[in-house]
Design a binder for these strands. Structure first.
Lengths: 258, 258
DNA sequence: AAGTGGTCTAGACCACTGA
DNA sequence: CAGTGGTCTAGACCACTTG
């Protein structure tokens, strides 16, 4: 009876809030709190477990970040039903991302759907600007940048940043609020055709700016899709970095013929 | 001097901790706190900004979740240097993930590197088990499961779960701590050849179990790679779901010949 | 031993939601 | 309006790291 039995792989001094988080998750896992259920309120949990309300909040916050529960202010905390995520197919042979499934998979009744310019921030020496410059083989001073947001089903789903090795960009193209598809728009502005060079997938927590754009708490897991497009002769012409709400999208690659 | 200037796109009643987070991030962005710098201690920040230490902690916690700073207990809070991430190439034509770059990109001096069995949990009706059953076209009762962890450079980088439509699995294969490569091991146990059917990329916050396995705080952004492998005749034979520490890996797809 | 971040409490007030 | 979660304070003690 020393350190820890196999069923609780924790150090002996696991904080109270984490033990509590585990106990609550157990209730979710075992179905004691089925999906959609409202958890007891914070004062109720506080009383039930004999801990301060702040400790309860710490536990619940972890479960929220782990997407186990959803907190609705003024209403309550609810067990999340299984996530509905948009699948975006990627055909390795055609080298194209098929977004055909997106509009049908989400309620499309909003007239606010589409991609919209957010801003055309100056290209400084920030880490992201430096990365873009590195990927395009230029210096930050040679680049222009435009940011956008993609809305689907009435919600902001993705925050996008584009860097191109020329400038300045036409004022109308980067007018905040302008609807459009930035990749073809930028290709047209540059007078070139674009094809994929590479694309990469990663994951990051939402920074403060992205969190605000996407309407999620800072730190929310975002799927990052970044990459370079080039002209047919192979000159890098665009670096793009999309941050997509992880709970609402996934990218699928099919390897077999169908 | 009313609500908010365009440079601070916030509602008028932005909480103190978020304003503070923004001010601190500003100092990081402008280079006032360069990468590697130690931030002032919590009591110091508390005094400088005239807020309670808990409020400071809330601000710093957001910056940590957004991967802006790294907190080292007993030492201090440091500005994160640009992330070093392992790139894993994916060749759409060969249909294979090229992990050749991994061992060279990370310090490989640890003898603890590799994939290790963690457990062979029973397949219940949990959401993940149900998803696996759906993908394999079976019922949960027909499946076996084994979990593993992949260690690289002396750290756990990925948590993996495998579901196969047969069982029980050989005791030696699922012995906790056993080193090995689970995909070929499982193929051998099944007596079949495996090829990719599809793979998908997503992002989620680490749940409590994954957080413990990977040694990261719950809610940390994880890159999820999941998919089905099948036998040459197209029968689904394996569902795999890998959760990879988002800060340490990215998957790259190259679309041009090189 | 001194300084750092980590946890916990008690209590207060506020903002939001729904009936 | 009552109930929910959101923020903030003051103060205490603990665990960890470094010299």
């Amino acid at each position: 009876m020393a350190t820890n039995p196999p069923d609780t792989p924790s150090s002996p001094n696991t904080p109270v809030y984490r033990r509590l988080a585990r106990r609550l998750q157990e209730r979710v896992d075992t179905g004691a709190y089925p999906p959609g259920t409202r958890l007891p309120s914070e004062p109720e949990l506080s009383a039930e477990f004999g801990v301060n309300r702040l400790t309860v909040r710490q536990a619940v916050a972890e479960l929220e970040r782990a997407a186990v529960v959803e907190i609705r202010r003024g209403v309550g905390t609810f067990v999340r039903p299984p996530a509905v995520r948009v699948s975006i197919a990627v055909d390795p042979r055609s080298q194209r991302f098929d977004l055909g499934s997106v509009p049908t998979a989400l309620p499309n009744d909003e007239s606010t759907d589409g991609e919209f310019v957010v801003a055309a921030p100056p290209v400084t020496g920030s880490a992201q600007d430096a990365e873009a410059a590195r990927q395009l083989g230029r210096t930050p001073a040679e680049l222009s940048r435009v940011d956008s947001v993609i809305r689907l089903g009435g919600r902001a789903r993705a925050a996008c940043s584009y860097w191109v090795p020329f400038g300045p960009l036409p004022a109308e193209l980067v007018r905040p609020g302008r609807p459009g598809n930035l990749v073809p728009d930028l290709a047209r502005a540059a007078g070139v055709e674009l094809e994929y060079d590479w694309r990469a997938f990663g994951a990051v927590g939402a920074d403060l700016a992205d969190a605000e754009l996407l309407g999620v708490p800072p730190g929310t897991a975002l799927l990052v899709r970044e990459g370079v497009s080039c002209t047919p002769d192979g000159a890098p012409a665009l670096y793009v970095r999309r941050r997509i709400d992880g709970s609402s999208a996934r990218f699928v690659l099919h390897f077999r013929d169908r």
